[in-house]
């Protein structure tokens, strides 16, 4: 039970004992700064340009160019030309982003500032997500130099990594949420504690000062 006496005293005492939220918030802040750094460096990196129509001004080739025959479509163009200048910043941003997502999930699953033994699952989830992201990036780098890419379940390898590994990877967190809900996210004792908080609030509101 969290609530024995007046709830503020007790919860604060528990938080002082071992509050992982502070540690985690510094980790999250550091990840955000790294992501800002990598994004900032990208904003300062000039995009390559190509001339599409003879005699006209060159256009940026880093994020899609007009299709030469079909006006309503875009093309990506030269893979190497648009990936090589931003490769390091992309890797930093991608890895930090996955870590950032998992750190936020950890922040959301803390209880009174503490981790449970069940939270090892978050680490497994982080590893699986990182594996999928790194696999996709490495596969894309092979795809750039591959003259005749094979298709896996209807898509080239890096796209297959995205669709069949990165997309479903967070399902581990879904499974954890569903399976461990009663054992960690909202336990029977949490429900009792919440009912007590509700009762205390109702009693407080019933006092004349609060009504005023």
């Amino acid at each position: 039970m969290y609530l024995l006496g007046t709830y503020p005293t007790l919860t604060r005492a528990k938080c002082r004992k071992k509050d992982e939220r502070m540690k985690l918030s510094w980790i999250i802040f550091a990840l955000l700064l790294l992501m800002c750094g990598s994004l900032g460096s990208l904003l300062l990196t000039p995009e390559p340009t190509v001339v599409i129509i003879e005699g006209e001004a060159p256009v940026a080739a880093g994020h899609g160019m007009p299709h030469p025959q079909i006006g309503t479509m875009l093309v990506g163009g030269d893979s190497e030309q648009r990936y090589a200048p931003i490769r390091p910043a992309t890797w930093i941003f991608a890895v930090c982003m996955i870590c950032f997502f998992t750190a936020l999930l950890a922040l959301g699953s803390l209880k009174a500032g503490r981790f449970s033994k069940l939270n090892w699952f978050l680490l497994v989830g982080l590893c699986v997500q990182l594996f999928a992201m790194v696999g996709m990036l490495l596969s894309y780098e092979s795809f750039i130099g591959d003259a005749a890419p094979r298709l896996y379940a209807g898509f080239p390898a890096p796209t297959a990594w995205m669709l069949y590994a990165l997309w479903p990877a967070p399902l581990l967190f879904v499974v954890f949420y569903v399976v461990a809900f009663d054992r960690w996210t909202f336990r029977p004792e949490d429900e009792s504690a919440f009912k007590e908080i509700l009762q205390r609030r109702a009693r407080t509101l019933a006092t004349p000062e609060e009504r005023i």
């Binding site: 875009l74 931003i86 894309y140 209807g154 898509f155």
Partner: peptide
Amino acid sequence: FTAMSTVIMEDDREAIGPWGTLGVMGCM
């Protein structure tokens, strides 16, 4: 989907890659 991917890849392989035509950082 294999038929769709093949046609799209023959025209522009980036379009069927994981970033499409937008590029890696746009998608990230």
